[in-house]
Design a protein around this nucleic acid. Structure first.
Length: 203
DNA sequence: CATCGCATAAGAATCATCAA
DNA sequence: TTGATGATTCTTATGCGATG
């Protein structure tokens, strides 16, 4: 990727981030591309230079968020941390990202009706890919004997469900920083799968 | 009251054109 | 040549009075 392409990517990223927050504030239908453009002190013509149309902007924004999540978890998976630590990190990192880009993830829930089938299917594939990474991390813990013999799918959905529900109750003004909070939640969720001393004795 | 037709507005998308 | 502009055209939604 040459310099020019990198620059263009940065610009696209900036537009996508602006779009995510504008869509979150005014809803997709309620927001105009002028709103998005104004946030970056550009004109809507410039937005059309980078994106085919409004729907394309929404689609690419969501792909962008998901791909970032995927990269994050893949990085953790490839690291040489103990399995227990990997899952714990994946959880707290997911939480911090969801809080950080809360608005974008919220709108992902309602985008099914807006995006084309192909677009939505691609989003789903990315989500599945993310879940798969999570499953692999959990499996690792089980194989290494630090987690209980759990049903991976159920455990994964419980963890993801708990994390994604967070965006409904999290508030900026809370006492805990998002870092503290994510660590706490990771701690609680981990207890669902971690072996306790009792488990160790049995097996 | 329902609805038809029309005016108006707002937003989406295109296009000629410009500056760096 | 590329990125960006802003005027424009196209499209859709909204209001609203006239008409049956």
């Amino acid at each position: 990727m040459n310099l020019r392409e990198k620059k263009a990517m940065q610009k696209k990223e900036a537009i996508m981030k602006a779009a995510i927050s504008v869509f979150a504030e005014k809803t997709y239908q309620g927001a105009t591309l002028e709103d998005v453009a104004q946030r970056l002190l550009m004109t809507k013509g410039a937005v059309y230079y980078y994106f085919k149309d409004k729907q394309d902007l929404l689609y690419q924004s969501q792909v962008y968020l998901l791909e970032n999540s995927l990269n994050n978890i893949a990085e953790i998976e490839e690291s040489d941390l103990p399995a227990e630590e990997k899952v714990s990190q994946a959880i707290s990192q997911h939480i911090e990202y969801v809080i950080h880009e809360r608005t974008g993830f919220e709108s992902m829930l309602s985008s099914e009706s807006i995006l084309s089938n192909e677009q939505y299917e691609h989003i789903l594939r990315l989500q599945n890919g993310y879940e798969k990474h999570f499953d692999e991390l959990i499996q690792e813990g089980i194989t290494q004997g630090v987690f209980i013999q759990a049903d991976i799918k159920i455990v994964r959905n419980l963890i993801l469900g708990a994390m994604n529900w967070l965006m409904h109750w999290y508030s900026e003004g809370g006492k805990k920083s998002k870092h503290e909070l994510s660590k706490m939640i990771a701690f609680y969720l981990m207890r669902m799968v971690l072996k306790t001393p009792n488990d160790q004795v049995e097996s």
